[in-house]
Design a protein around this nucleic acid. Structure first.
Lengths: 339, 339
DNA sequence: ATGAAAGCGCTAACAG
DNA sequence: CTGTTAGCGCTTTCAT
């Protein structure tokens, strides 16, 4: 300990370095100081153990170097992955993500946005639970900082990063067709959100694109956290039960596996399965489950780049980036043997 | 819009309300203003759409009203639950959690702590990956704000919230014993962290407490994210294979279920299973899996209460709160039929 | 490139 | 209880 003051401030550093406060600031921020000053200030700062005061920086520069991240549910591995990727991406450029759980609760989402405003976030990344919430739309419109939407379609012009669910699911269906499957089922959540809509859309497009009738094999679970066991069991009990199944998320995957087992079927011999979203569970299952994966690094990179560029250039036109759903083949998909 | 200034500040509010800046501040903060002033200020604030500037509040009051939360891995449902509970708890008292993923990476943890310092966190809640990291211990010691440790035993005196894994697992083993089980196995992660140590300890205590020899039925997975399929399969292949199994976490639960199925055994008829940590998967499995659950609301309440009380009263002695592991009985546990 | 000075928006200390 | 005043620690003019 060299000082006996409670806290070291930049003034102390400047004094020890024998330069003015302004020069010390410039040196610390690497903004136009001579080699000599730079060196002296850095040494003084190190010697005193100087840490800049973020509140003061923030107040003066009007930049918090923080991005509010409003995600539906951090317990969902998908969003946990996004957050983790955002963290990696932001930390590298001196930014920080501030996470808030939306919890599919309009009220909570609006409050989070308000909190982001109060806390002076430089920008916001958000994936609201409900795309049609008027209150959220209003809150979003009133936001004083730029926002980027993740995988949702909201009214108005926004920068957004969209996962290409339609193409992904279509590709998966086509892959299954190549394996000889025709009775291909799709299990998704109930609820009218972009991911669900697009997946169904892609599913249909695969059949119509192949000149086939779209089979009546789409089931929707009651809500995001519900098991789809009953729905999938019902599907499997039909006379011409599906030979392949695409399911949304880990949760539905486990339901599907249970339904398959309960019916005395084997995977993949009797039914091939593709899950949407990669998880350790899918990877380590036996057989490992083929998945449509999202490269969250890529998604995060786009999100960050969109919001940071707009902070610097607010008048940019609204942009949208697409992120592919990549098919990863594993043991859960084989040729169809049943007719 | 009533104003044409870029931003409304408290001075504007005070002016419109016809009171001094100080009075306006007191009214906004609910700290000693007369009814009349209170009312006028509130109305003026509402009319102007005033939002306090958090950086300025923070700079002046030396309080960020933010708690740094360093958790090992937000993708782990357990920690996602803690964060969610912390968020609920803190939002209610005007605080905010700032989440950082430690990722079981010493470097990352130390950096997170440094970032917490820079950002002026009022306190820190942390669950480091490695309890014996000297660098982390040093960083922790140098922390200028109070810290509370979650479910870890770190060198030095700290406030902490500890899950009572030992009693929990002991209780679970005893429960299984009441069901007639004797060959009870325990599958936990490798690695020397408090939760693992305590669970093994509780497991042993159950046997010695019952006057029985501790069976050689504890297996440890290679690492936190590894599947324990091989280890558990090995266990089940032994001549006197276990009739009951306690597994740690969702991940190992799925491994265990797979191993059981692969061996041609049925759950619960051939083997009873208890998982540590409740998840939708465990609840919705068929049969539903009995679990040892942690009430994260309670844990979060203790964490917040400890850190906030220490902010106000830094000289308090180190305290530790215990949180029970509660057994929740479901269909995966039945009487032992095998000998 | 550097120093001096101003002030970001707010709260706290003080006097009345 | 209220108004006045002084900064919190920093960045950013503005001169030089």
């Amino acid at each position: 300990m060299t000082s006996n003051k409670a806290k070291v401030d930049l003034r102390d550093v400047a004094r020890l370095a024998g330069v003015s406060l302004g020069s010390a600031s410039r040196a610390i921020n690497g903004a136009g100081a001579s080699q000599a000053v730079q060196q002296k200030v850095e040494q003084a700062a190190a010697q005193l153990g100087y840490r800049p005061n973020h509140a003061a920086q923030s107040l003066r520069s009007r930049l918090s170097r923080t991005l509010g991240c409003l995600l539906p549910d951090i317990a969902n591995p998908l969003y946990a992955q996004v957050f983790r990727a955002l963290e990696d991406e932001l930390l590298g450029v001196g930014y920080l993500p501030l996470l808030a759980n939306g919890a599919n609760d309009e009220d909570r989402e609006v409050r989070a946005l308000s909190m982001f405003t109060h806390r002076g976030m430089d920008g916001v990344i958000l994936a609201p639970g409900n795309e049609r919430s008027a209150r959220l739309a209003d809150a979003l419109k009133a936001l004083p900082m730029p926002a980027v939407i993740f995988d949702r379609e909201l009214p108005g012009q926004h920068d957004s990063v969209l996962i290409d669910h339609a193409a992904g699911v279509r590709g998966a269906v086509e892959r299954l067709m190549q394996f000889g499957h025709r009775r291909i089922a799709l299990a998704v959540w109930q609820g009218d959100t972009r991911p669900v809509r697009r997946r169904i859309q892609g599913y249909r497009a695969a059949f119509t694109g192949a000149g086939l009738a779209v089979p009546d094999l789409v089931v929707q679970a009651e809500n995001v956290t519900a098991s789809a066991f009953a729905e999938i069991s019902g599907l499997l009990a039909r006379p011409h039960s599906p030979t392949a199944l695409i399911v949304q998320g880990t949760h539905m995957l486990t339901s599907a596996l249970r339904a398959v087992a309960a019916r005395g079927l084997r995977m993949p011999e009797d039914i091939s399965i593709i899950a949407i979203g990669d998880t350790p569970f899918a990877r380590e299952h036996d057989p490992a489950v083929s998945v449509l994966t999202i490269d969250m690094q890529v998604a995060a990179r786009h999100l960050v780049s969109l919001v940071l560029s707009r902070i610097n250039e607010p008048s940019l036109p609204a942009r949208r980036e697409r992120v592919d759903l990549r098919y990863e083949h594993r043991g859960s998909v084989v040729g169809s043997s049943r007719r």
